[in-house]
């Protein structure tokens, strides 16, 4: 059990954070908190890619005289990191659109609380 936690603690942390984010999106009544939950979920996914690309003791993909060229396994795969730059941009844009919609909702209904909002929409 302890070994499992030691080996996978990053993934366990990410799974917990992902669940917290999903919980916030589904259960919280305030639309702003839903957006926060969405942000947590997006950040967790990005972290998941990064953690997946991590390797103990390995270096960046630039020729390092200490590591040499004998063992290419000692260089990290840079692809997930660069991909996640794109994913971060996407997450930021989604957050921006979500906040813009929240501003629109607030201007129209003067509330961000879902039950009140549903009442005012009738």
């Amino acid at each position: 059990m302890l070994e499992f936690i030691q080996g996978y603690y990053a993934y366990i942390f990410l799974a917990t954070a992902f669940t917290i984010g999903l919980y916030g999106m589904m259960v919280k009544q305030n639309l702003m908190k839903k957006v926060l939950g969405m942000s947590i979920v997006a950040a967790t996914t990005i972290m998941f890619w990064i953690v997946g690309a991590y390797k103990e003791g390995a270096g960046v993909t630039v020729l390092d005289p200490r590591i040499g060229v004998e063992d290419p396994g000692m260089y990290l795969n840079p692809l997930p990191h660069t991909l996640m730059l794109t994913a971060i941009v996407v997450a930021v844009v989604t957050l921006g659109v979500a906040l813009a919609l929240l501003i629109g909702i607030y201007r129209e209904y003067k509330t961000l609380d879902e039950p009140t909002l549903l009442e005012r929409m009738k």
């Binding site: 969405m38 129209e108 909002l117």
Partner: peptide
Amino acid sequence: RAVVSAFRYLVMGTVGATFYLLGVA
């Protein structure tokens, strides 16, 4: 009411896209 439905669409759509991205990972 379009803004509210667009917000719901955004929340659901983002969850969908995130699941997809996790799967790809």
